[in-house]
């Protein structure tokens, strides 16, 4: 699937010419820089509290980028600016620039509903709706489009297969999602995000509430999914970052300390603080 530029207004995405939007930049697909996300001097505040300081960071398309750093370093805040979930928090604001495939995300005129449909998010704690498994997965698609019954069923099946949950739940799609185990619930949440057809998947410590076995299955899933999606994962767990990610960004006290290929950052960090953190001297 081709990455589709993010238009400011809704347009019919089912057309095969992704650059038909008037408001999106008309850069041909092949010439587009490999970065999916670019941030320039991004600063963010909660009320008067500055939580991010002039972040410059590029995230490559179809790769897994891990945000690591001690609690309160701003990594989750940064993630929540990528789909503007911070809009729901009174007093949250940001300056600078974030662009996703060239479209500015901090633009006041941006249609955030449209943005969130192109950016899936998986939360720290599994949060399935108190509905059936099928309705959970179909929730997002139904919001945005009108599908035939067969398309919808196929979409649910493929999404559940994509999150490696299909075999476990195919016989009980109409039973409540709350009956699933924690790991299954989290995979359901991933299926739910996939079903909308996003370009970018955000994962906010997706395994922190799970047991080691479920964690392993989710990590494997993340590695599989990066062939289709750009994935940004926030994690506390450095082993997890080194296992799943291609690039890693290390944050400390709201500043981006170091970023680079994951294996390099973990073996030969350039910065002292990165080294201290990845070797477990603090954090």
């Amino acid at each position: 699937m081709k990455t589709i530029p993010l238009p400011k207004t809704n347009m019919d995405q089912s057309t095969t010419t992704p650059t038909s939007s008037t408001s999106a930049p008309t850069v041909p697909v092949a010439l587009r820089p490999p970065s999916a996300i670019e941030m320039n001097s991004l600063s963010a505040w909660y009320a008067k509290n500055q939580v991010l300081h002039a972040i410059d960071l590029d995230i490559a398309a179809k790769q897994v980028c891990a945000f690591i750093g001690p609690s309160g370093c701003g990594k989750s805040t940064l993630l929540r600016w990528l789909n503007r979930m911070n809009d729901t928090i009174p007093g949250a604001r940001a300056t600078g620039k974030i662009s996703l495939h060239g479209v500015s995300l901090l633009d006041a005129a941006l249609d955030v509903v449209d943005l969130r449909r192109r950016v899936g998010m998986v939360f720290q704690k599994p949060n399935p709706f108190p509905k059936s498994i099928f309705d959970n997965v179909a929730f997002g698609p139904r919001l945005h489009r009108i599908y035939s019954r067969t398309d919808l069923e196929e979409l649910v099946e493929q999404s559940l297969r994509a999150s490696a949950l299909w075999e476990e739940v195919k016989d009980r799609l109409s039973s409540s999602a709350l009956g699933l185990s924690g790991g299954q619930q989290q995979r359901l949440c991933i299926a739910r995000a996939i079903a909308v057809g996003p370009e970018l998947l955000l994962m906010d410590e997706p395994c922190s509430a799970l047991d080691p076995r479920s964690t392993a299955s989710i990590e494997e899933l993340i590695r599989e999914l990066r062939t289709t999606y750009t994935i940004v994962i926030v994690t506390h767990n450095m082993q997890q970052a080194s296992r799943v990610s291609d690039t890693t960004a290390f944050f400390y006290e709201g500043k981006l300390v170091e970023t680079g290929a994951t294996d390099l950052l973990f073996t030969t960090p350039r910065e002292r603080r990165t080294e201290d953190y990845v070797t477990g001297r603090f954090g």
């Binding site: 249609d111 489009r145 599908y147 493929q158 999404s159 297969r161 994509a162 490696a164 599989e224 289709t228």
Partner: peptide, 22 residues
């Protein structure tokens, strides 16, 4: 396997008729 399904899901998700934003 999973990645094929993901690509399928992405493809099917575009099949529906978009609801009118306005």
């Amino acid at each position: 396997m999973t990645s094929i399904a993901a690509r399928n899901a992405a493809e099917i998700s575009q099949r529906g008729r978009l609801r009118s934003a306005s």
